[in-house]
Amino acid sequence: HNLTITQGKLFFHYNPKLCLSEIHKMEEVSGTKGRQERNDIALKTNGDQASCENELLKFSYIRTSFDKILLRWEPYWPPDFRDLLGFMLFYKEAPYQNVTEFDGQDACGSNSWTVVDIDPPLRSNDPKSQNHPGWLMRGLKPWTQYAIFVKTLVTFSDERRTYGAKSDIIYVQTDATNPSVPLDPISVSNSSSQIILKWKPPSDPNGNITHYLVFWERQAEDSELFELDYCLKGLKLPSRTWSPPFESEDSQKHNQSEYEDSAGECCSCPKTDSQILKELEESSFRKTFEDYLHNVVFVPRKTSSGTGAEDPRPSRKRRSLGDVGNVTVAVPTVAAFPNTSSTSVPTSPEEHRPFEKVVNKESLVISGLRHFTGYRIELQACNQDTPEERCSVAAYVSARTMPEAKADDIVGPVTHEIFENNVVHLMWQEPKEPNGLIVLYEVSYRRYGDEELHLCVSRKHFALERGCRLRGLSPGNYSVRIRATSLAGNGSWTEPTYFYVTDYLDVPSNIA
């Protein structure tokens, strides 16, 4: 807008934040220059609390790290170098490059900038070799853009010569660093050979998330399962459950009422301010606690030095998902009996873990797994792929695949051998790939016309006998059925096997 004052003059007093240069501009645009008398524009009460600059400061050096910015700028000295009290560095987070010096300023003089007072450097006698002032900004957020400017702080001049310097606002972004852990990993099994893994992005990506790394490792069953005799009275049979499938998407929606109208769909109840505040506090606490764990609990591995020492970490090797089922080394339970199943799973520490690289999504279907087997899954978020990966501390989750139908069934015939004193040795093959492992066998036998009897055969007993022995049988026709019990439950009964026990007292003698 054009402003013209045809008559009258300007009068400025007691404006401590208004620089004289701005008042002189007002004289020019209003056409009143030359009308004012000496005392109409006070030299001592206008701009006496402001830094009124008329020179431009330029930054000469900028260096960044993930949490620091090192700045240096060209030296500046007023005509009387004693008038320079120091520099004021202003900075704040700036997602967009549209910041002005006066953003967030209120009537009390406060604003949204963080201000650092910096002492002037030592003055050199040689004007050509003056030290460049600077400042190291610490405690910054990774991968965050900051708006920065600097200006001088000078003393009051009796001659009211307006001098000083100020830089333009520059924008500097800190470097990326390792992201925080992925949030809320959930693993479920939808079949006997697959596990579905879902997660949420890290709360602090500290860069642009480029991919996720998912490692999985087959877990050995508890050692007590191999040692305890679950045929003993009072000892509860062990059981394991597989990871249940995901709930429906509708039930997972946030901010939804727990109660549904019987007449149909209901609208979600909005969260109160107290609920939102509580969630923010919980989120802040979780982030602080995660940072504490990362800094205190997890110790970084030592990389190899120039002395030739090897990095103890196993090298990563990509495998196809079809090879995942046989990740671990199978060892027989008892070496003397080769027909026992290889369900003991000690994992070799030198073995390469299978892994998958996930790009542009937060889910993965891990296939080719062994049925009813526990897996430990390790999830890392990465925001750099080359020249070397920059990934987060791992988040861990466990899951067990679903049982395989008929995996616990005894394959092959049940054979028998009759000894003296009416002892019958029953023999059968253990299931080759049971659900988890076989903890015991149930032997059901009966003599024709009598009630059915049951015998429990422990895992250890089966390994020693290759089956079991029935003792003290009365003469007669017998039928026997056997079924295995694994961590997933009972298998199917075998087809009945028949044998006849004679009275050993009636056996004919070869003595003449």
Rank of each mutant, 00 (worst) to 15 (best):
residue 508 P to K: 04
residue 227 E to R: 07
residue 379 L to G: 01
residue 469 R to K: 06
residue 309 A to P: 05
residue 384 Q to R: 08
residue 345 V to R: 08
residue 444 S to P: 01
residue 438 I to T: 13
residue 507 V to I: 15
residue 256 Q to M: 13
residue 337 F to D: 07
residue 504 Y to G: 08
residue 240 R to G: 06
residue 492 S to I: 12
residue 391 C to S: 02
residue 471 R to S: 04
residue 365 V to Q: 06
residue 416 H to V: 11
residue 380 Q to P: 01
residue 503 D to H: 03
residue 343 T to C: 06
residue 216 W to N: 09
residue 487 L to Y: 14
residue 371 H to I: 13
residue 505 L to F: 11
residue 317 K to S: 11
residue 239 S to G: 14
residue 455 L to I: 07
residue 229 D to A: 14
residue 332 P to I: 09
residue 422 N to M: 06
residue 321 L to F: 11
residue 499 F to H: 02
residue 304 S to F: 14
residue 454 H to N: 14
residue 227 E to Y: 06
residue 440 L to A: 05
residue 475 P to F: 09
residue 461 H to E: 05
residue 319 R to D: 04
residue 222 D to C: 10
residue 309 A to H: 04
residue 280 L to S: 05
residue 225 L to I: 08
residue 225 L to G: 03
residue 344 S to Q: 14
residue 455 L to C: 14
residue 296 V to R: 06
residue 280 L to H: 10
residue 469 R to E: 05
residue 235 L to M: 11
residue 296 V to N: 12
residue 355 F to S: 11
residue 395 A to M: 11
residue 203 S to G: 13
residue 244 P to S: 13
residue 493 W to R: 01
residue 236 K to A: 10
residue 309 A to L: 13
residue 509 S to P: 13
residue 376 R to I: 14
residue 290 E to P: 02
residue 258 E to M: 13
residue 398 S to R: 11
residue 366 I to N: 00
residue 327 V to S: 09
residue 479 S to R: 06
residue 463 A to I: 09
residue 472 G to K: 07
residue 453 L to T: 15
residue 429 Q to T: 10
residue 443 V to Y: 01
residue 482 I to G: 01
residue 495 E to Q: 09
residue 292 Y to K: 02
residue 425 H to T: 09
residue 407 A to Q: 12
residue 359 V to R: 13
residue 412 G to W: 06
residue 502 T to W: 06
residue 241 T to V: 15
residue 469 R to L: 06
residue 449 G to P: 12
residue 272 T to S: 11
residue 476 G to R: 01
residue 326 N to V: 14
residue 281 E to V: 08
residue 441 Y to L: 01
residue 396 Y to V: 15
residue 335 A to K: 13
residue 470 L to F: 06
residue 259 Y to S: 10
residue 421 N to F: 02
residue 227 E to M: 12
residue 497 T to K: 11
residue 319 R to E: 14
residue 228 L to Y: 08
residue 402 M to C: 11
residue 393 V to W: 14
residue 356 E to S: 13
residue 226 F to G: 08
residue 434 P to Y: 02
residue 471 R to M: 03
residue 325 G to L: 02
residue 349 P to Y: 04
residue 306 G to V: 12
residue 484 A to V: 05
residue 454 H to Y: 14
residue 479 S to I: 07
residue 489 G to E: 15
residue 227 E to N: 08
residue 271 K to R: 09
residue 281 E to P: 01
residue 506 D to K: 12
residue 314 P to L: 06
residue 288 T to Y: 14
residue 323 D to E: 12
residue 395 A to N: 10
residue 331 V to R: 13
residue 242 W to Y: 05
residue 473 L to A: 04
residue 298 F to S: 02
residue 320 S to W: 11
residue 326 N to W: 10
residue 323 D to Y: 14
residue 434 P to K: 06
residue 323 D to H: 11
residue 345 V to G: 08
residue 368 G to P: 04
residue 247 E to L: 12
residue 353 R to D: 15
residue 244 P to F: 12
residue 263 A to E: 06
residue 411 V to S: 08
residue 421 N to H: 10
residue 468 C to L: 08
residue 206 N to S: 07
residue 407 A to T: 12
residue 298 F to A: 05
residue 407 A to Y: 06
residue 472 G to D: 03
residue 209 I to T: 07
residue 235 L to D: 04
residue 357 K to H: 04
residue 389 E to H: 07
residue 370 R to L: 08
residue 305 S to Q: 14
residue 379 L to Q: 02
residue 344 S to F: 11
residue 436 G to D: 13
residue 241 T to K: 13
residue 238 P to K: 12
residue 371 H to Q: 12
residue 277 L to K: 14
residue 211 H to E: 15
residue 210 T to W: 15
residue 246 F to A: 06
residue 381 A to P: 00
residue 220 A to V: 11
residue 240 R to F: 07
residue 504 Y to C: 03
residue 252 Q to S: 10
residue 476 G to F: 00
residue 398 S to H: 03
residue 475 P to I: 12
residue 391 C to Y: 15
residue 377 I to D: 01
residue 227 E to L: 10
residue 471 R to F: 04
residue 488 A to D: 15
residue 453 L to M: 08
residue 354 P to C: 10
residue 424 V to S: 02
residue 207 G to I: 00
residue 353 R to H: 08
residue 274 S to Y: 15
residue 502 T to K: 06
residue 466 R to N: 00
residue 306 G to N: 07
residue 450 D to T: 10
residue 308 G to T: 11
residue 223 S to Q: 14
residue 377 I to H: 05
residue 503 D to Y: 14
residue 235 L to H: 06
residue 486 S to P: 01
residue 481 R to I: 06
residue 383 N to T: 05
residue 290 E to N: 01
residue 449 G to C: 11
residue 504 Y to E: 06
residue 477 N to C: 06
residue 503 D to T: 06
residue 385 D to Q: 06
residue 499 F to G: 15
residue 498 Y to Q: 14
residue 359 V to I: 12
residue 252 Q to Y: 03
residue 388 E to K: 04
residue 441 Y to S: 03
residue 263 A to P: 13
residue 221 E to W: 07
residue 239 S to N: 04
residue 394 A to R: 07
residue 239 S to Y: 15
residue 252 Q to W: 13
residue 292 Y to R: 02
residue 457 V to T: 11
residue 506 D to A: 13
residue 334 V to K: 12
residue 286 R to M: 10
residue 396 Y to R: 04
residue 432 K to D: 10
residue 318 R to Q: 13
residue 493 W to C: 01
residue 446 R to H: 07
residue 372 F to T: 03
residue 500 Y to D: 09
residue 247 E to V: 11
residue 285 F to W: 02
residue 442 E to N: 01
residue 508 P to V: 14
residue 284 S to A: 15
residue 373 T to K: 03
residue 414 V to C: 04
residue 246 F to H: 15
residue 480 V to I: 15
residue 352 H to N: 15
residue 466 R to Q: 05
residue 489 G to M: 02
residue 463 A to N: 07
residue 232 L to C: 13
residue 476 G to T: 01
residue 490 N to R: 15
residue 350 E to I: 08
residue 372 F to E: 03
residue 349 P to S: 07
residue 218 R to D: 05
residue 245 P to A: 12
residue 393 V to H: 14
residue 340 T to F: 12
residue 207 G to K: 00
residue 304 S to V: 14
residue 381 A to M: 00
residue 474 S to I: 10
residue 445 Y to T: 06
residue 501 V to Q: 05
residue 476 G to D: 01
residue 232 L to K: 08
residue 235 L to R: 07
residue 337 F to A: 08
residue 400 R to C: 08
residue 260 E to S: 08
residue 399 A to M: 02
residue 348 S to E: 09
residue 480 V to P: 01
